[in-house]
Amino acid sequence: MQEQLELTVRDQRGARIALVLGAALAAVLWTLDDPLELAAAWLAFGAWTVWRARASTSPQLPLLALVGGACGGVVLLAPHLPQWALAACLAIGAGVAPAHLWLESLRRRLARDEFALVLVAQPFVALLHGFVHAYPGALEPQTLEVLQRVFVASALIQSGLALVRREPERVLGAVIQSQSALVIAGAAAGETGWEAARMLLVSTMGSGLVLMSIASELRRRFGALDAASHHALAKTAPKLHRLFVVCGWTFVGLPGGAAFFAEDLLFHALVGQSVAATVGFIVAAGFNAIAFYRLYLALFTGPTVRPAYAPSATASWKIVALTLAVLALLALGLAPSLLVQHSG
């Protein structure tokens, strides 16, 4: 018994160290400019996911994820590929639907916190940013336009999936993937689009982190939750409830958050290039709001049920950290120009 307990504690410590390592690798991805260094960092992050996937579930290699990751790495190492090949590799590497299946397969094999890190750290956006920065003329305008439409379509599919998913983390994951597809679509829409994409990216990463942390904390305290039924947690977990609702509304583009201005700016950047993509973008944003609200109602409202056991409370440092993050997101929503590099 004692041995088993020690083993569990050791496992938990190991998982925590692995998570910190993954976060460090993801952070490195965002700091590199040189394509070779970026490719190395991308591969290192990929190796980390493979290691964790094997450690968490089975020793089999996550093949789909390996293919997806490899496609992403190829563009950095071979930027002179034909346009169609570059576009295909970028789309697959970024997990555009149906290539999102490699991400989905990874979700099934990674621990929840580890997959949340993959979503929140947005390594695909880092990869695309690095690629465009290193090889500015590599993608022709027509290719960019096609990619843009593909990303908007993918965002639409992900937001639709968020409407039918039942597990809270999966609903949030689909919304985050939808938002990040919109970020990439916006980034391809000229300089205005890039400014907007940066704003939306900051909002997606910040809000995604807060919302996924809350979902994870709710799972720890109350076990498996389901978006198809009502759990009435507003009274049992009032602090998490408040943070979830405020952060969620700002995340999906309500005034008060940076996402509101970012989406507005993105629409304006996009409409000049493709009306169909703009309509898709607007519909995806609408679906995301409905998906979030449906999840909120499922988690926090409904007839109050007295829990069979007394769930442990959330550590106060977590509440403080999440509150500070939400306040920072609200502050960015009040002063969006802080996120714009080239104003005027």
């Binding site: 300089e191 205005t192 201005f261 700016l265 304006h268 120009s337 714009v340 080239h342 104003s343």
Partner: peptide, 8 residues
């Protein structure tokens, strides 16, 4: 203006 970027 609350936000200005590339003509927007």
């Amino acid at each position: 203006p609350l936000l200005e970027a590339h003509g927007y």
